[in-house]
Design a protein around this nucleic acid. Structure first.
Lengths: 247, 247
DNA sequence: AAGTGGTCTAGACCACTTG
DNA sequence: AAGTGGTCTAGACCACTTT
């Protein structure tokens, strides 16, 4: 095998399909292919990695299973952009006044440039002296607030957002990150807990103080696995529902 | 191909690995292999289905991905029994007084033979006149109740439990179902919602009335996909935490 | 028509488990 | 030593998309 194809740190005792998979994620993380460009064809990759098609396919099937790429017959293999639009619907059942399922509208209320607390600094792997951009955001349905969001971003990567007028932030954050800062969110980890509404929750979300509130903490990562956004979302537990399959 | 291998309803336009996968789940549902017995070897299955090893492996890899079977090199392929022990830990972080993670002890408090309400009857696919076994159960850590459970079982399948002394139910339900009624839980769907503690919750779980409570509704299925148990579990939201990965 | 991924073959050799 | 799954080959033909 042509070992020169692989990264220096690769453990050559691993199966070849595993080495190829690891090499492909490394190259995707390096931005070698964007979500719009197709990866090389199976034939080309077979030649480059000096393996047979079966081995190569096994590597790519791993990436498909992980959600890193999608394949379409006749078109090619593409880096996948995760669909966060539907993310909220995993947890909250939002309906408009007419009972239609709706995507809440996002609006940034406040921005400050601050040093984050230790928990956020650790999560974003920031130096103790580094500053972050902190955004306060609400999400509305029929002009009524349904979610409160606090967002922290490591300053250097998102410098463009430190000066952009708040009115230009638009409805969705992740397309903005991509447009204004060339930062693509590739995956995320969310942790759910339940709290009781404090004064601020009660005022913003129009619920009683002490009533249950869902808190979703999210750490969003780029393709290299580097954390780029820390976000906490709070919403009334009334609209909360989550379903899991167990095997 | 030897079409005689497949069930009459099989759609022969599907890929062979898909047909083989479907046939294997059908046979597993029929109880052809228990979780202790190995399935036939790859070589035997290749011969039986008249396909090459690559095609057969693809079928079995689907089952592995779905969690229906597990494979062990040198040993064989086995029907998988889902591990529900850890299920609670997906939602609740239970710790003993010493801070150790613990499995709560289960105790059945009450049993009645009743006609279930419509929601439960529908979930268990029961006839309007059929009766069910209703169990009330608590789960304890350090002798303190942490979870309240209400369980409904369709009478015919679980007749043995209608007369079994409550003291003989033991700690875990699913091993009991298997032992006493030969019913194996193969999968389940759980739905989480948040409520506020009522009087009974408050008394049993030692929380304040109105404080947040997690409710987990579970429908458990056998290998054939038939619902066999309906269960609702309630616990204080204080100990609740759930984590999800998004791609 | 050319190029892509999707399905499938008929083997080989290796690593692990059990008698 | 025999039997199991795990890895890998070097192709073939098919179905779909694009030119």
């Amino acid at each position: 095998m042509n070992t020169a194809s692989f990264h220096a740190n690769a453990d050559l005792r691993l199966p070849r399909y595993q080495l190829i998979r690891d090499d492909l994620v490394r190259r995707i993380a390096n931005g070698e292919w964007t979500p719009e460009q197709a990866l090389p064809t199976e034939a080309d990759l077979c030649e480059a990695y000096v393996v047979s098609i079966g081995t190569l396919r096994k590597a790519i099937e791993l990436l498909v299973a992980e959600g890193v790429v999608t394949r379409t017959q006749g078109k090619g293999t593409f880096v996948r952009r995760p669909r966060f639009d539907s993310s909220l619907f995993r947890f909250f059942r939002f309906k408009s006044a007419e009972g239609q399922a709706v995507q809440p509208i996002g609006r940034v209320l406040k921005r400050e440039i601050v040093k984050p607390n230790k928990a956020i600094r650790d999560a974003l792997q920031m130096e103790p002296t580094e500053k972050s951009i902190h955004l306060s955001r609400v999400r509305l349905i029929d002009s009524k607030p349904v979610l409160r969001e606090e967002i922290w971003l490591a300053r250097p990567r998102f410098d463009a957002l430190a000066t952009l007028p708040l009115d230009d932030f638009g409805n969705l954050m992740y397309p903005l990150y991509e447009r204004a800062c060339r930062q693509i969110v590739a995956s995320a980890t969310e942790t759910l807990t339940v709290e009781q509404a404090n004064q601020e929750d009660a005022a913003t979300l129009h619920v009683d103080v002490g009533s249950p509130v869902i808190m979703v903490n999210r750490v969003a990562l780029d393709f290299a696995g580097t954390p780029i956004e820390w976000r906490t979302t709070r919403g009334a537990a009334t609209g909360f529902q989550y379903q899991v399959e167990i095997r």
